[in-house]
Design a binder for these strands. Sequence first.
RNA 1: AGGCGCGUAGCUCAGUUGGAUAGAGCACUACCUUGACACGGUAGGGGUCGGCGGUUCAACUCCGCCCGCGCCUACCA
Length: 824
Amino acid sequence: MEEFPKYYGGLETESLWQKRWEEEGIYRFDPDSSKPVYSIDTPPPTVSGQIHIGHVFSYTQAEIMIRYFRMKGFNIFYPFGFDDNGLPTERFVEKQLGVSAASLPREEFISQCLEISKNIEAQFKELWQSLGFSVDWDQLYSTIEPSSRRISQRSFLDLYKKGLVQKKAMPALYCPFCRTTVAQAESEDKEIPSQFVDLLFHLDDGRELIIATTRPELLPALVAVFVHPDDPRYKELHGHSVRSPLFDREVPLLTDGKVDPEKGTGAVMCCTFGDTTDIEWFNTHSLPLRQVIDGAGRLNELAGPYQGLKVSEARTKIKDDLEAAGLLRGRKEIVHSVNVHERCGKEIEFLVKDQWFIKILDKKEELIAQGDKIHWFPDFMKERYVNWVKDLKWDWCISRQRKYGVPFPLWYCKSCGQVVLAKEEELPVDPLQTLPKDPCPHCGGREFLPEADVMDTWATSSVTPQINGRWGEGDDRLEKIFPMSLRPQAHDIIRTWAFYTIVKSYYHHGQAPWKNIMISGHSLAQNREKISKSKGNAGVTPAQIIKNNTADTVRYWAAGSRLGMDTFFSEEVLKNGKRLITKLWNASKFALMNLENYRPGTTGKRNLIDLWILARLDQLVEGTTQYMEKYEYGLALSTLETFFWKDLCDNYIELVKGKIKEGTEEERIGSQEVLYKVLWTTLRLFAPFLPHVTEEIYSLSLKENEKHRSIHLAPWPENEGFCLTGEDEKKSLFLLRLVDAIRKGKTEKKLSLAHPIALFRFSSPWPREDSQIREALPTIFSLLKVQEEAERFEPDYTFQEEGLSLAIKWGEKEEKAPDQQRPL
RNA sequence: AGGCGCGUAGCUCAGUUGGAUAGAGCACUACCUUGACACGGUAGGGGUCGGCGGUUCAACUCCGCCCGCGCCUACCA
């Protein structure tokens, strides 16, 4: 056994172990192993800015579980990846460089993206390593690398051949600022101040009609006016037409039950398009299309004199002109919530564009059924998935009018206009760079137009199981790892990563991508708000927090709440973690001191105290294992912590000291064997949570005997069937009560726990000469300095409760020699 | 407005299928340097379990309504 240092090395020790784990490759996936495979589909973080403590919270919880499964004997496939293409990365790079993508040539912009991504990815990897993550870094992937692009394009071709993706012109969410369409998942709500204005319209017979709107700039896009069919105010107007102010266009007055008579004046403008209701009416009432906003967010020729103005400029100008013409009858300041693009915060418009859509709306039932086949932890998170799918209003639009991303593998034939797909062997292909080798299969044409859009970033990051499984790349990796065992992620991305990945796996393979999904909560900022890049409330960086506290301490914090629950970042909890690590170090050090003359494997005589801790240990193994099986790492840890601190340190280790020092050889070996077993088991139970300190203790002590290369490759402890029942159990608990009672006596009399007890007697429900109790007494007397048991004496202190009474005569405290006193 | 979750000691959180005086850590009080650990130990104070009603022999736990907070979705006339 090596020398056990007085103090634990903390950060330095951690980085040494991180390096050794990596060098020795102990977390590598072994494709030839006969163990059952456990594969993890880790969400590739988006390269779009700095990582914050919330990411650490979520990823650490998963990592703890993965360490558990490794110890349970699984062959772990734990890859890591980065999602480094698409709009999020583009926006990030634009910000970093202070340029817009449009102002740079495509090639140059892409090479800038790649360079900046590489830097960020290096930082990510360093951070994960500094937390001791047991990732197999040989499996590292990025969603922009050629094989990922190929698989992403293969995914598109497969969907195309199955008729699950189609190009169609229909209203889509469009961000004029980013100049691209976006998916429903990329829009979010934002409270924005606005003005509700009353406009004066005239009916065809000259009567007046007031309509309230927040978007007067859409007047040139007016296609109808709606009222509620039962609204008495407007009953007589049914069938008439309405003339719009300023633009002098005549549109029909129609009725629809969706109109809320309470809102505004109960009469509504329907423009193409102001909101989702407009789209609905456009479809249900077959209205004409009048699109006045262009891709740059400016009004077009349909707006007449307002052509070229931005939406916001046009809004002001049109209001001013209406006012001047006496057609604006009222203004009301309001704050309303508006759909904005999550990446830039700018208002989203609905524009009709020719876009590629993956079919969702007519597959909702099947997609919900797939979600149902996955085990969700915690189970209620499934509701969020189901609700999201149920409420979807759009098919999944995957066209992005951007530069950096995976291109569509197709061209359009110039003569017949048909789609010409790339061939499997050409992938990955950039249609802007190359042309089809063969003539158009539809008409034999030889000239082609490339599809210039790129795919939505999620079109790529939704195929992570396929990327990890090298789908279609000519080996059997996919069969080995798919469906993947676990998807770990936070609850905010159920609607994106989880949803899209389920869609893709179901469409490609007819099954859900994972067996289990664990959904973690968020780490909240001090004011109970979600931490997010846009709010800038992330606080201290994770790297700094680890530096200040060690990785094991940060992991302890991350494990400190139940799965799925949001938690605060808390210095307090970090402090507790540090205390635990120190205690673990000290307790191990002391246990090992007491094991110095013990030969592992030998057995001796056990007393009731030994049997009690073994029984508690089995309960602990049972309890923590059950919690881990339910992904309740937090409950497992707190059970473990309570056992370690209360049962092991405060009681067993204290009690066993005397027996090991003063007992017979048989007694000594009996307790040493138990102590060894308890220490080894406890360390392994702590290992997934505190991988560094447990590895360090293990390597300094038990490794010599246990022989596993790392504690993390040792098996998770099993229940060995120890338990105390009947009288044995009652007697063991009695002995612990006896210890408590004596401690209480000393404390009440304000004496040191080491204060000698000159004379002592006690009574129990068992005969005086009960051998099991007798055997355990020297241990207790040694700890509490009981010098002599006596029948008759005048006590200084007595204590009595059900089944236990005792009497004590205090002894004289020995003065310590000055040289024995602890130096300051 | 709908969905999901949360509301337990001053703070951070446990309390698994309803069952005796509701738990832990921090903080607080008193005492104790005990042979690993004062980043320790022993004892103690502190809670109308968000509110109201219901089911039950029994409710922190189940049901209904309400209040507060968070997240997701909807609401742009």
